[in-house]
Design a protein around this nucleic acid. Structure first.
Lengths: 121, 121
DNA sequence: TTCAAATTATGTTGTTTGTTATACTGACGT
DNA sequence: ACGTCAGTATAACAAACAACATAATTTGAA
């Protein structure tokens, strides 16, 4: 099972606090990339396999340029990877980071939606 | 154990797509609340127990008003809950949602950091 | 009343998002 | 090869947002 939460103990040295802050900074960048309805949807769809920009456009009912920009953001964050095939470009998840997070998000919003029944502490 | 990823199957009805979109919207709100260095730090610190605004101020080396505003955002999202005690106000995590996500984040950024670092490689 | 702890209001600045318009690239027909 | 079209990407810009600082306000205790 997943690590239960790390020990953010009460007495941290300044150095530890610093490290923590820079991790928080990196982490918040990832989170920023995810915290957008469209980008989140894109990632969800990519979980089932690569999709072309047009397919995504259709799936999201969004405009071409918008989707392209959203993909571009995800690409910059290294979350998705493009593959060209003729005129089309197919995107897929670069690694399992998005999946890892999506799992808990999904669990939080699409499964345990009826309240905090599985409080783990 | 966590659900392995839900089946975002390839053939979704419009209704399903709609449901997915609104979930994505809720989820992205949560994520937006988390995608901020300061707020992330606050949540991390609250994992070890409630803290007063002043304590948080100190822990984050941030100004009072800033911290208060960050807390206010988290409060709006229902992630933290205040408790008054005299002049001080102590904040704690409302439920385990933040923890659930923080676990993954921590795992991604503070543990599995030695592999592909922060780049997609 | 005065102080200390916090919140809220407000202005400013920087960031994000979508839109439209334009450019790039590969396939196809002539 | 040339022109054209389909699929994408990028640029430029305006509208909407988010974040922080400062200042004003609320609340509780001495």
């Amino acid at each position: 099972m997943a690590s239960s939460l790390p020990v953010f103990s009460d007495d941290l040295s300044d150095t530890e606090l610093d490290k923590m802050m820079s991790s928080a900074c990196e982490a918040s960048n990832l989170l920023k990339a995810l915290s957008h309805e469209g980008r989140l949807m894109i990632l969800c769809h990519l979980v089932t396999g690569e999709k072309s920009v047009t397919e995504l456009e259709d799936l999201l009912s969004a405009r071409q340029a918008a989707v392209s920009q959203q993909l571009s953001r995800l690409r910059l964050e290294g979350l998705v990877t493009p593959r060209r095939e003729g005129k089309a470009i197919y995107y897929s998840l670069t690694d399992d980071r998005p999946k890892r997070i999506l799992e808990v998000i999904y669990d939080l919003f699409c499964v345990a939606d009826d309240g905090a029944e599985k409080r783990g502490d």
